[in-house]
């Protein structure tokens, strides 16, 4: 009898059980109201014809059939793909070049620090200030940087309207210059963690620079590169801040990506239901990418039990 009582498992008092939840309560509440609820609402809204009158009516899958017959859709999908793929490829390439140059070739030199700090500036300064520069460079009047430069050298006589010719190229250029630094930080840290001895050993063995880069540096960068690829892809597919500030999706629909199209449908044309249906596609793509992203991490290592019993 006494034996049974002593074997009785220690039961946490209620206050102790509730205690951790109090810590995460404010966060959980915010997440519920502004993340889970909107996620559900997006799905619900996409089945209604909610518009400026704010009297939603259930319309079934009409919105989705409308998406597939939308004559803008092929161009918008193409824009999204071009924007995401080109931005990703070029910014990744440059992040790689810059981090190898500053952390391997110029390691520990003042100039390396200078280059890195300069490259961080586009991502540090606020977006609204940053895009002004690109607007100036590609300004369609004679005032613009490229136009005045080209007129001075007598290449063209009339100012070129850059934004009507290559709006997408401008948007991609502005996007990559400011996203390079994010990848650069991670890659630089990874290269920095390679022990100096490895380089020395390679040099003693007479390895060329090329094989140092391909055999020592690149294998170390495998994981960071995967991380950057997926996280930047999520960003490029879902966000439209630079596009909105630079071109607003125009001229015509030349720079409208899928996520911006959803925004325009909802907030410019007030077709909230249709906008939600379009954004649901973006949500779906981002969700798949996010799941890929999660697979990159080792969860068991991240979750540790408390080492205090209370």
């Amino acid at each position: 009898m006494e034996n049974a009582a002593s074997r009785q498992i220690y039961k946490k008092p209620f206050t102790k059980k509730i205690y951790p939840y109090l810590f995460i309560a404010p966060f959980a509440l915010l997440v519920f109201v502004f993340f889970i609820l909107p996620a559900i609402a997006t799905i619900v809204m996409s089945f209604t014809d909610l518009n400026a009158s704010m009297k939603p009516k259930f319309v079934g899958v009409t919105n989705f059939t409308r998406i597939f017959s939308d004559y803008n859709l092929p161009q918008i999908l193409w824009n999204t793909a071009i924007f995401a793929v080109l931005s990703l490829a070029i910014s990744l390439l440059f992040a790689l070049i810059i981090s190898i140059a500053t952390q391997y070739f110029l390691k520990g030199k003042l100039s390396a620090v200078l280059y890195r700090v300069l490259w961080l500036i586009p991502s540090i300064i606020p977006a609204v200030v940053y895009v002004t520069f690109w607007k100036y460079v590609f300004d369609p009047t004679e005032e613009g940087f490229l136009n005045s430069l080209m007129q001075q050298f007598g290449i063209v006589s009339d100012p070129v309207s850059w934004f009507t010719k290559g709006a997408m190229a401008i948007v991609i250029l502005a996007t990559i210059v400011s996203t390079i630094s994010g990848g650069m930080i991670l890659l630089s840290a990874a290269i920095n963690s390679i022990p100096e001895d490895l380089y020395k050993a390679a040099r003693v063995d007479g390895a060329s620079e090329k094989s140092v880069i391909t055999k020592i540096i690149m294998p170390t960068l495998k994981w960071p590169l995967m991380y950057i690829t997926i996280s930047e892809l999520i960003g490029f597919v879902s966000s439209y801040f630079f596009i909105m500030l630079l071109t607003g999706g125009g001229p015509m629909r030349d720079t409208t990506t899928l996520s911006l199209y959803a925004y325009q449908q909802a907030f410019n044309l007030k077709y909230y239901g249709y906008g939600a249906a379009v954004s649901l596609i973006v949500v779906f793509i981002s969700f798949i990418l996010t799941l890929f992203f999660l697979r990159l991490f080792d969860f068991d290592q991240m979750i540790r039990p408390s080492r205090i019993e209370d």
């Binding site: 993340f35 999520i234 966000s239 996520s259 954004s279 996010t290």
Partner: peptide, 30 residues
Amino acid sequence: DFKGKRAAMKFLFLMRSFPGITLIIATFFI
């Protein structure tokens, strides 16, 4: 330690990388 910590962690992680901006239309409505 609390019940559901693992699930909450996973959710936190998903939310960190999931672009909340895609839900802006519904957020606006709310």
